[in-house]
């Protein structure tokens, strides 16, 4: 399987996993479009929920969304109205990212052998951009540094009239 076709397969797994999550624990409507390659300079976001995986293939699965969407989806998950961006909202975004990545990882493991999943990292701010910088001692950036020239394969979603994206960076290990 070529890396390009594998990335397409993983994107389908991401869509399927996100759909399952929204149907079982979030109970919000969900629409999605085809994935496309997005350069990191084009990414502007408020919240990033990121999980990395290592094994025969290594990569990052990241949820990019606005604060408004983060509040809506955390409220739905917790069945409580949340109006402020608290640590509980960040925790919820981390768990959502974790459940999507975990299910993708299970599918990848079945095909390519065991993989290790990281604990989720959540970054929140205003109009964040994401750039992979080499030789930088920040964990999130170190995770991304090996992909510094790779574009994200981004799947766009819409739920509750809010857009969000799930991005994928993927590479065969030792290459």
């Amino acid at each position: 399987m070529t890396p390009e076709s594998m990335m397409e397969t993983v994107c389908l797994d991401i869509t399927e996993s996100t759909k399952t999550l929204f149907e079982t624990m979030i109970m919000m409507d969900l629409k999605y479009d085809e994935a496309s390659l997005v350069d990191d300079t084009q990414i502007k976001t408020d919240v990033i929920g990121m999980v990395s995986f290592t094994g025969k293939y290594h990569g990052v699965i990241a949820l990019f969304c606005s604060k408004t969407f983060a509040l809506k989806v955390a409220s739905a998950l917790l069945m409580t109205e949340l109006n402020e961006f608290t640590s509980e909202v960040k925790d919820a975004i981390g768990e959502i990212s974790n459940m999507i990545a975990g299910n993708v990882k299970t599918k990848l493991t079945a095909q390519y052998g065991d993989m290790h999943l990281s604990i989720p990292i959540v970054i929140a701010g205003e109009g964040l951009s994401i750039t992979a910088v080499n030789n930088h001692p920040v964990v999130a950036e170190t995770t991304l540094s090996c992909f510094s020239k790779d574009p994200w394969l981004m799947t766009p979603f819409v739920s509750n009239n809010e857009k969000f994206n799930i991005g994928l960076l993927l590479r065969e290990s030792n290459k």
């Binding site: 990545a101 975990g102 999943l117």
Partner: peptide
């Protein structure tokens, strides 16, 4: 109770 769903 986990996201780890693989048979192994």
């Amino acid at each position: 109770v986990t996201t780890e769903g693989g048979e192994t």
